[in-house]
Design a protein around this nucleic acid. Sequence first.
DNA 1: TTGTAGGCGTTATCAT
DNA 2: ATGATAACGCCTACAA
Lengths: 334, 334
Amino acid sequence: MVTIKQVAKRAGVSFKTVSRVVNNDPTVKAENREKILAAIEELGYQPNLAARMVRKKNSDVIGFISDEISTTPSSVDILRGAQDRAWELGKTLMVFNLDHKKPTPIKLLEECRQHRAEGVIYGAMYHQPVELPETFDKQPTVMVNCFDPNVERASIVPDDQQAAYDVTMQLLNKGYKRIAFLNLNPEIVAAKLRLAGFEQALQEFNIEQSNYLVETVERVIDGHTSDVTREVAERVIEEFKPDAILCGKDLVALRLYFVLEHKGLRVGQDIGVASFDDWDCIPQLLVPALSSVALPYYQMGRAAVSRIVEMVGDKQVSTHIDRVKCQISSRESF
Amino acid sequence: MVTIKQVAKRAGVSFKTVSRVVNNDPTVKAENREKILAAIEELGYQPNLAARMVRKKNSDVIGFISDEISTTPSSVDILRGAQDRAWELGKTLMVFNLDHKKPTPIKLLEECRQHRAEGVIYGAMYHQPVELPETFDKQPTVMVNCFDPNVERASIVPDDQQAAYDVTMQLLNKGYKRIAFLNLNPEIVAAKLRLAGFEQALQEFNIEQSNYLVETVERVIDGHTSDVTREVAERVIEEFKPDAILCGKDLVALRLYFVLEHKGLRVGQDIGVASFDDWDCIPQLLVPALSSVALPYYQMGRAAVSRIVEMVGDKQVSTHIDRVKCQISSRESF
DNA sequence: TTGTAGGCGTTATCAT
DNA sequence: ATGATAACGCCTACAA
């Protein structure tokens, strides 16, 4: 590999002058700068970041420990956002995956520290509580799409309650009066928060208990989650006769579309449908296109990096939880 | 940060002895090893990889330039596979995303070289030709899910032709006699290869041209691809009356299911359906569950890292193209 | 404006 | 079995 000294020799100056050019120090004679830049070009010199890192105190590296994030199709956007923001700020994101049978978070954190990461981001595949080991206190840490139920830690999560409130309000404002909510497994954080937002909106409209319904479409048996959307949806439509259905995620809506197609009910006309996730191409693929509340994963990823860089700079630890607003992608299903 | 010297002081030995312990050099007295390990534990010492890298010639870093890979839900599995394999081999994968309006591949390659990456993997979101700049010749390079149409370069791609051949053979063996193939945009590599595999199987069964049909379900207008599965499927079913339909991807099959539901045709009974991708939970979500040929993304990611590590070790450049076999996930749709 | 000396944390060499 | 000493490529401080 080409070193700074070889460039210096080629350009006929001392290596320090080359260093100045590389680091944009203005105190270099234009003529020398030209020569040096030419030499750099010719030799294909690239500064050795490792050597630089040894001498300087900052590594410009941010660790990202992703708890099955890249296993889940939608939440990869967190990584994309984080990557993009890191690039903008001149930082390098070093990503480590954490799978079922894979290294512990502690091992991955050690890896981060060996690379002298200035801070560490811990991201989860879906909004959930995560108890991080104490070792995470040793450097700035930001949690994305998760939070520590015991310790106060800087966190970025989607505002699920606002999301449910907003979409329910929009349904009510459009005149829907009997809404059924096909919620996810009630144990998960998002389901709880969305239920709260849903009921909050209903209260504002003074909708009575008999005029709305909440059902779960996920059965958990032995830790395995199975989906029962079709049977639940059929029953709900038969017995409760809703004029609109809010789905816990796009895949629930997708199954619902099949049920409605089968029953001859036209989405957007005979019955309104709304959903959460706005996952990839699924909403546009459906006919009519599904209105869905987008989870702001990309923004969350960006926010996480912004936050960690702030923490590294200020040294002041602000441990508040950022709830990122979710936007409704309005289409034709209600 | 704790240095090796601080550990040495604590343990009452020279820093070189500590270095030996850290690097598993057996020539250290057991008693001293104990003391040193204890000191390391107490101080929370983590070796500085940057400093190590300055001294050693190998960085154990592999660069991964992902061309919109993480934008595409399925192909992230390439990254997962690469990460996993890298971890197994004691390497660190440094991932850089390449988006539409983002840094050029050349810039990202420079980044890799600044980190002294031992080799670079270039991954694409879907099987396609990619012309890499000449600068990629300067170090071991492996292409995943893509290939260079001009230069011979080590590449890992899915065996689309075999995939189509296998699934078509399976359809024919099960007794289907009039197969319609709803293929993707014929300009893309996968579509061409699959068509070849499809026809190869038909020939082996001596199926005449009048007894199979190939249609495109993607319209490209001004560079934008739009899907016309529904209208094409309706026409094909009406006019050609196939007993089985092979879909270019799961999302095409998904749309087809709606058409079939609408027409009252029962999948797996009145008509067989097969597909490519085996994308996430979509195949299982459909009723009956969709049989689909899985793209071996995870394996390809692993293979890419294995390959680059070999190249780094052997210095002998083998530029052949690895075609990774695709497995059929058999379910109930045919 | 430029160059020299010293040091960052580690590994390699060669004594002891 | 252990420890000085040099070296890696770069940056900082200071001197010229």
